[in-house]
Structure formats: C-alpha cells, structure tokens
C-alpha cells in the first residue's frame, strides 16, 4: 500500500500550512493513494519522520515523497535525502521514492493568471493575516505572538476594550 507524503519546509507563522493541508485533502479526494500525509522539515508538526510513522501505522509499504517546493534547492537536494535516510533507518521495511519538486509547469502560468484575474483592492489585503490568526497555535516563536494580531495576547483584549 502506498502512502504519499507532501514534504514542506514548515513555518512559525500560525496558519501557514493551511494551503498545503488543502492540497493534501484534494489529493485524498482525487484518490491519488490510500494514504496522504503532510510532513515538515522544520517548525511545523508533524515532522517528516512522524509522517512516515503515520503512514506505517496505516499499513503503508511504499512511501512516495512529493516535495511542496518550487525548486530543487538545498531543502530538496540536501535536507530531504537526509530525512529520507533517517526514515529508512527507523522504518527499513518501507520502500521510498522521491519525486521532483514543482519546478516548471505550464499550469503555474495558469495559476498566476487566475490569481491576477481575481486580484482584490487593499481592503482585502489583511485576510491572509486574519486567516493565520484563525489557526493560532499560541507559539511564542510565531511572528504574530504578542503582537496586536495575536489572539493570545492579553493586551489585544485591552486594546479592543
């Protein structure tokens, strides 16, 4: 049984992973594989090794690692092979395949044009930040922590009051 792991960098900003989770959910709905998980290199949970463990628990015998990176830079060419080697030593019974990063694709041009066609005025520009706050993990390392945008900051309540 195949488990797909979308491999991403991870972020300290709350909600930064929501778009990736949406891709994972759509891939599940497309039936790309019986198991689809997300695994991060840094900051966000689950880390890559934990994602491999999740796949193994669900009965995966083969792991396909799909990088959620635009280019095969350092994270994909150096850090990812290290993470896969670590997974191989912990879960030696599994087969691992790493597929290419997004790179060039005509559909990236489609994505740019679709986005430009739907572009919105400045009143809407704060939505990405508001959306991040909605997924607040109250991490002290988050760039929003203890700022006016962070819902876990007591001063915010005072400011609104």
């Amino acid at each position: 049984m195949t488990g797909v792991i979308l491999f991403a960098h991870g972020s300290l900003l709350c909600g930064a992973g929501q778009s990736l989770l949406a891709h994972a959910q759509r891939l599940r709905e497309m039936g790309i594989a019986p198991i689809v998980e997300v695994g991060y290199l840094n900051y966000s949970e689950p880390r890559f090794l934990a994602a491999v463990a999740r796949c193994a628990e669900q009965g995966a015998t083969h792991i396909i690692v799909t990088p959620y990176f635009l280019i095969p830079g350092k994270f994909v060419s150096i850090d990812l092979p290290k993470a896969v080697a670590e997974a191989q030593s912990k879960f030696p019974a599994l087969d691992y395949t790493v597929v290419p990063a997004l790179g060039f694709d005509e559909r990236l041009a489609d994505a740019l044009i679709t986005s430009a066609n739907g572009a919105r005025p400045s009143e809407a520009w704060g939505e990405a930040l508001e959306e991040s706050v909605a997924f607040c993990r109250a991490l002290p390392e988050c760039p929003l922590y203890a700022t006016v945008a962070c819902p876990h900051k007591p001063e915010r309540t005072e400011a609104i009051a």
Binding site: V4, L6, A22, H23, R26, L27, M30, I32, A33, I64, T66, Y68, V99, P100, A101, L102, D105, R107, L108, D110, A111, T114
Partner: peptide, 10 residues
Amino acid sequence: HLTDILAERT
C-alpha cells in the same frame, strides 16, 4: 492548479 501538478509529480 498546484494540486494538479502535485498529483502529476506523485
């Protein structure tokens, strides 16, 4: 569109 590209890479 990125979901479609991820699916194709996979």
